[in-house]
């Protein structure tokens, strides 16, 4: 996740101080990725070094406000314009676990698939419960995120089913 660009995105709307950036980020992303304030200050220092933000003339210390520069806006626009690379995928522990269990016969792949499906189904049930309870007016970021998590969990279950079918065909 790009903390740099997230901070630029918030500053593009209006200047803010470090703690304000932290709370605004967490609010807009449904509190799922907590930011520690130290990380915000380190990132601001780097952004300043690269000329993407500048401190506002008055103040100083923790109440120091920051504002985005013209190169900062350009960097932000470039980030938004670039689709997120999905390929090659990040190292996927579940896939590696299953591939190795199948290839090396060091574990019962069928059992791993079943355990994982139970766990993923439970996670999916939890997402659904949260969606049922979410207020569509006030909690839009949360609902959009839950949609993303739900679809990923659903895809994972489909993949586990498919692994099971392929392995069953091979042994049967």
């Amino acid at each position: 996740m790009s903390v740099r660009h997230s901070l630029l995105a918030i500053l593009a709307e209006r200047p803010a101080h470090g703690y304000g950036l932290k709370s605004r980020f967490e609010r807009d992303t449904a509190g799922i990725w907590p930011l520690n304030v130290g990380q915000v200050y380190t990132t601001l220092a780097r952004l300043e070094r690269d000329g993407l933000v500048v401190p506002r003339d008055d103040g100083g210390g923790a109440r120091q406000e920051w504002r985005i520069t013209k190169p900062g806006r350009a960097a932000l626009a470039a980030w938004y314009d670039a689709p997120v690379a999905g390929d090659p995928p990040e190292r996927d522990e579940l896939a590696i676990k299953i591939l190795l269990a199948v290839a090396t016969r060091s574990a019962d792949a069928g059992r791993i698939l079943q355990n994982q499906r139970t766990a993923t189904m439970r996670r999916l049930q939890e997402y659904t419960r949260h969606r049922r309870e979410a207020d569509p007016e006030r909690e839009l970021p949360w609902i959009l995120l839950l949609d993303a998590f739900t679809l990923k969990a659903e895809a994972e279950i489909k993949w586990l089913d498919r692994c099971e079918a392929r392995l069953g065909r091979r042994s049967g």
Binding site: L124, A153, E154
Partner: peptide, 9 residues
Amino acid sequence: HDASHASWA
């Protein structure tokens, strides 16, 4: 067959 529908149960 749909896991996300099943998750309403």
